[in-house]
Design a binder for these strands. Structure first.
Lengths: 116, 116
DNA sequence: GTTCTATATAGACATCTATCAATATATAAA
DNA sequence: TTTATATATTGATAGATGTCTATATAGAAC
């Protein structure tokens, strides 16, 4: 498979399963950025995410199954880290796109929702 | 906002709304690749996607609201094109990541689902 | 005006999934 | 082995959303 080739329906399906399902949730996107900063264990991530520990484990499993994060045990703790630098690279490109969009919109019409 | 700064919870929310909700569906991901190839109208996209025209319009609206695609009317047709080259750039980085993952897994354990 | 074609919207419904509480598993320490 | 801590899994539920049919809107041709 080359990137110049037109993408097939099957490859789109794989992209969707690995990436879109992977990052398709606010908490998981946040998790990716948090573990990209430095490896963190589940307890720490739970404190940062405002959801229960089982929910965090659930999200980490989804990320782990897709190779978006790596898990490494240290005693009773398990430390999660970013699975591949390309993840952050792509996210930062998209981040710059979003930043421009927000600026265009004047941070009003489509801005931050109050709570969620 | 700089990309070196640690990402805030609000910015994660924006990223999620613009990007993850945007590409968080197989059909929309496919639409992005299709209009990235060249501008296409709704009828053409409907023929390529195996869903009804209202469903395609629904997806296009979601992409359009986020600036992921542009819409331009030509007579009664409306042609959609890619909203920003960075979208494709980021998607191709993720695509190469997925390609590696598939190769690692031997295209078996987490391969293409039969139907959906 | 009417008619035809292209696209968008509204409303209903089924499926998916994020979340929780409860419980299980695993490692370490005593 | 027992106890304590850290993480994972299970099962249930509520909310979100992709899809459809039916209908509305918009432009072009007559």
């Amino acid at each position: 498979m080359t990137l110049n080739q037109i993408i097939s329906e099957d490859e789109v399906a794989l992209m969707h399963r690995y990436i879109c399902e992977g990052i398709g949730d606010t908490k998981r996107l946040r998790l990716l950025y948090l573990v990209a900063e430095r490896p963190r264990n589940v307890t720490e991530l739970t404190e940062l995410l405002d959801v229960t520990q089982p929910t965090v484990s659930h999200h980490l499993r989804i990320l782990r199954e897709r190779g978006l994060v790596n898990a490494e045990r240290d005693g009773t703790s398990i430390y999660y880290s970013l699975g591949d630098p390309r993840i952050l690279e792509a996210m930062n490109i998209l981040r710059s796109f979003v930043a421009d969009k927000i600026q265009e919109a004047g941070s009003t019409e489509y801005g931050v929702r109050s709570t969620e």
